[in-house]
Amino acid sequence: MLQFLVLFVSLLLACQPLPKEVPLEKYRNQFIEGEVVLDEALKDKVPKGNTFLIISVRDLENPMPLAVLRVKNPKLPYKFKITGKHKLSHDRIMEGLVIITARLSASEGAEAQKGDLIGFANAQVGTRGVIIKINSEVE
């Protein structure tokens, strides 16, 4: 009986309309879609063995990433879509102009290491067709 009551109350609350002050559009548009490409000049510098493509999104004021996508042994060019499910904190909203970093590394760690290949792009959250060109090596 108790289980039925809990289920009933949960369903009842789940069916309630959202308050008007919830910015639903902000949540729907929390995505960036595009492609990571590698500069031909760096083709021979791709790490041997397992590689990781780490794509991170951060806003212009805060150096801490908003969202991160890690892909093991990606095939470049790599099509990506970063959404709210990739966010590191659900308290922050991906919105406005952001910086997207794509890093190709032998390590899946968060910090860039010597020999990693990296590229940057500015993008508006909620857009498609963003191109991130990996065009430099971390010294």
Rank of each mutant, 00 (worst) to 15 (best):
T101L: 07
A67R: 06
G115P: 04
G34D: 00
L69W: 07
L42I: 07
D59Q: 04
L66D: 01
L38P: 08
S105W: 05
N73C: 09
N122E: 15
A106R: 09
A112K: 09
S89W: 04
S56G: 11
S89F: 08
G34F: 00
L88I: 08
A102Q: 00
F80C: 01
L66N: 02
L69K: 12
F80W: 05
V125Q: 07
V98A: 00
A14N: 10
K43F: 06
L18C: 11
L60Q: 11
Q113E: 15
K87N: 03
F4A: 14
F52N: 03
E61W: 10
L2V: 14
E108Y: 13
E40D: 13
V9W: 13
K26H: 12
L5F: 12
D44M: 06
V130E: 03
V71I: 14
N62K: 15
F4N: 15
L7E: 14
A112H: 07
G119F: 03
S56H: 09
E108N: 15
D44T: 10
I134G: 01
G84S: 10
L97K: 14
K45C: 08
L76R: 06
G84L: 05
G96D: 02
V37R: 11
G34Y: 00
Q16V: 12
G109K: 11
N135R: 01
V98N: 00
E95M: 05
L5S: 13
N29F: 02
L18R: 13
G129F: 00
K79Q: 09
Q113G: 11
S10M: 13
I100A: 01
S136Y: 11
A121R: 02
E61T: 12
L42C: 05
P65T: 08
E95S: 09
A112W: 08
I132P: 03
V6Y: 12
V68A: 05
L18N: 12
S105D: 05
S89E: 06
G115Q: 04
C15A: 15
N135K: 02
Q113S: 13
V46P: 04
R58G: 05
I134K: 03
I99N: 02
S105R: 03
R92C: 09
S136A: 13
Q113H: 11
E33I: 00
V138P: 04
F52I: 03
V57H: 04
Y27P: 07
Q124C: 02
H90T: 12
S10V: 12
V9A: 13
E95C: 03
L24G: 06
A110D: 12
I100P: 00
Q30L: 04
